[in-house]
Simulated scan of single mutants.
Amino acid sequence: MSPKDLLSALIVILVWGVNFVVIKVGLHGVPPMLLGALRFALVAFPAVFFVKRPAIAFRWLFAYGATISLGQFALLFYAMSVGMPAGLASLVLQAQAFATLIFAAVILGERVRVPNILGLLVAACGLAVIGIEGGHAMTAAGFVLTLGAACMWGMGNVITKRMGKVDLLSLVVWASLIPPLPFLALSLMLEGPGRIEASLSTISLTSVAAIVYLAFVATMMGYTLWGKLLARYPASQVAPFSLLVPIVGLVSAALLLDEGLSPVQMLGAVLVMAGLVVNVFGGQLARRLTSAAR
């Protein structure tokens, strides 16, 4: 990977890791469902007038928007509004890698290899440890909702696989037309017109900055750079960088929000990261050991 592309990968990891802190900040002034509506409205408009629509059927566009955009962030935003810390959210959300693995096996018939199973078991132990220690600065509802968000992300990944080759920025922009109205409907039902009006009429510059970051930096810039990397390099070379996202998330949450982990939660975090590493690199290591044995 060239130095320029390596820098792009590190920028994306930094942007996506800090993203969880920004969500937490945004939720201080804007309720979760309204925050989702505003985020995706900004992603879609005016970009849809300048970005070409992806060459896929509407049902795939709708499915992607309903899972990765609406489902994932509705659950994640709500989780963080009811007590899920930003740092732990960045870590637990990485369960999407294993949700993707399971959904791909069931729906697409993809083969699950031994390293995948080992990685899943190790990470599951880590998540169980984190869940058991839920009383330490984390609510059970926030934890379960974040796992739900990871499942929605995993389902969206499988849908993306079924689409075939597609421009990632184009897909993200046009799929962002799907969530705003459902988010607004959820906001009306769960948060009420009074809270919506109060939030919009007294919105702070900090909240505006958070929404702009989520829409343009984390979503549009992040996915544009990531899509270019995936176009230039094999996915096996690009995907491991995503392992750094929860590390940046945990560190930035500790520095900017003064969030900390209990020793037990730290153990759980180490197990989750170990499971992710086994899932990503286990197959390569097994092949090298097999070749060396011969």
Rank of each mutant, 00 (worst) to 15 (best):
L38S: 11
L76C: 08
A55K: 14
A254N: 06
V251Q: 03
A140M: 12
L75N: 03
K4F: 13
I107T: 02
V18H: 12
F20C: 08
V144H: 05
M163Q: 06
P179A: 05
A89C: 05
V82K: 03
A55R: 14
V238F: 13
T206V: 12
A55L: 06
F103M: 00
V172S: 12
A198C: 00
V245H: 04
P182H: 07
R294C: 02
R53V: 07
G26V: 05
A254Q: 02
V270K: 02
A137H: 12
I203S: 00
Y64L: 05
T202Q: 13
K165C: 02
A55D: 15
A99K: 04
L7A: 15
R195S: 10
P179V: 11
M266N: 02
K52D: 01
I23K: 08
L108N: 03
G164R: 09
M80V: 00
I196A: 08
D258P: 00
I13Y: 11
A128E: 00
A105L: 03
F216I: 01
L7G: 12
A123L: 04
W174H: 15
G119F: 08
E110I: 02
H136C: 00
F50E: 08
V248Q: 08
T146R: 06
T206D: 12
L214R: 08
L120Q: 06
A124M: 10
V264G: 01
R113C: 01
N279S: 12
R53T: 04
A235V: 13
G83A: 03
P179Y: 12
A41P: 04
M1N: 09
W60I: 00
L243A: 13
A215P: 10
S262T: 06
W226F: 15
M84I: 05
S262R: 01
I11A: 14
R113N: 11
V114Q: 09
V208R: 07
A86M: 07
V48K: 01
L76E: 03
V158P: 02
V272C: 05
F50S: 07
F241C: 04
A209Y: 07
G36R: 02
L200S: 07
I247G: 05
I102M: 05
S207P: 09
K228Q: 15
L214Y: 11
I130W: 08
V92M: 01
W60V: 00
S291Y: 07
Q94V: 04
S291Q: 13
M220I: 15
T224Y: 15
L127S: 00
T290M: 09
V280H: 10
D5P: 02
I132D: 10
A79W: 03
L225P: 07
Q284P: 01
Q265F: 09
A44I: 09
C125H: 01
L7V: 14
S291T: 13
L118I: 15
P115V: 10
Q96T: 07
I132A: 14
V92F: 09
D5T: 05
P46R: 02
W174N: 08
